[in-house]
């Protein structure tokens, strides 16, 4: 037979492999500053924008009210050095928590009321948001970006103006009553009072927070594999049943995300109850505002804020646990 094969245009003879590059010199155990900087950015962010303000609020809540500027004591006397700091720490106490906060029932009521309004509003948001998100996720693919756009569109207008607009809609001779009157549902001579009630607050909240509910729901529904529904149908499951047995369980992470994304900020909501709520609409955010600016009682206001934060951490942690489990383990 012939010797070495002749060179040919096909891939039969590959060119010799290039010489193996010399191994990279190994790095010692030196500190990788670049990596550290990368990791440092989010931590720096957290420290500057979350931990530091929180420590300030915590410190404030342990101080005492004073008729002075700023309206609280003690202040750190930096010029006295370590002694000044120690004196400052010794003067801190829990009076804001143990005093008015517990003795005056108004704070507990405000908290309970906030909890009630936030729960009802979140539930309504879920009932309204789910069908919207479902319809969006089932819409033709080309439409979806436009539908998402339509959900986000209200953000392009000032939040305050949008809430103000509801005053016009909800007032006794406003659009809502006019519409209901035209349909013969209410008596135009004695229209029901909606503005400045808890109902108005809930309507305003549902309106304002709807995108925060719809978007996470949409994200989880849109991601769902459509063949799962075909599989369910194939195994004998009628469509209405596969919605409850397949679609809803699989969208649970979105339900949780949307519910918490709404519930937590609603708890501390201030603008909507202030504009649409009546004088007896007691919500914790408004209480904090009143303590800070009307009563100039900064320590108690801070104490209320700290209590609210601690209470809200519980559902957040629950949510994280649920997400880690992937929400699939339970049956």
């Amino acid at each position: 037979m012939s010797g070495a094969p002749a060179p040919r245009p096909t891939s039969a003879g590959t060119p010799p492999a290039p010489a193996i590059a010399a191994a990279q010199p190994r790095r010692g155990a030196r500190i990788d500053w670049g990596r550290l900087a990368m990791i440092g950015v989010p931590y720096g962010w957290l420290i500057v924008l979350f931990a530091f303000p929180f420590v300030l609020v915590l410190k404030l809540s342990l101080s005492d009210r004073a008729l002075a500027v700023p309206p609280f004591r003690p202040l750190i006397e930096w010029e006295r050095g370590l002694e000044g700091i120690l004196d400052f720490l010794a003067a801190l106490d829990l009076e804001s928590y143990t005093g008015r906060l517990i003795q005056n029932p108004i704070y507990g009521e405000a908290l309970a009321n906030s909890l009630g309004i936030a729960s009802i509003a979140t539930l309504i948001l879920l009932l309204v948001g789910y069908p919207i998100a479902y319809a969006m996720a089932r819409a033709p693919r080309d439409w979806r970006p436009w539908l998402v756009m339509a959900v986000i569109l209200p953000f392009w207008t000032s939040f305050l103006i949008r809430v103000y607009a509801w005053v016009g809609i909800l007032q006794p001779d406003g659009l809502l009553n006019a519409g209901l009157g035209a349909l013969g549902l209410v008596d135009p001579a004695a229209p029901p009072r909606i503005l400045f009630t808890d109902t108005a607050v809930i309507i305003g909240i549902v309106y304002a927070y709807l995108p925060f509910m719809v978007l996470p729901l949409y994200a989880s529904l849109e991601r769902m594999d459509h063949t799962l529904l075909e599989a369910a149908a194939d195994l004998g499951c009628p469509p209405w049943k596969s919605f409850w047995l397949v679609t809803v369980p699989i969208s649970l992470p979105g339900v949780f995300a949307g519910a918490l994304l709404c519930f937590i900020p609603i708890m501390g909501e201030f603008v909507i109850p202030d504009l649409l709520g009546g004088p007896d609409t007691l919500m914790i955010g408004r209480t904090i505002w009143v303590e800070f600016f009307a009563n100039r009682n900064w320590p108690v206001a801070s104490a209320v804020a700290v209590v609210l934060l601690v209470l809200l951490i519980v559902p957040i942690l629950l949510f994280q646990r649920a997400q880690e489990r992937g929400l699939g383990a339970h049956r």
Binding site: L228, V246, I250, G328
Partner: peptide, 9 residues
């Protein structure tokens, strides 16, 4: 199904 379409939950 080609993708198996097992119910993940």
């Amino acid at each position: 199904f080609q993708s198996y379409a097992l119910f993940p939950h």
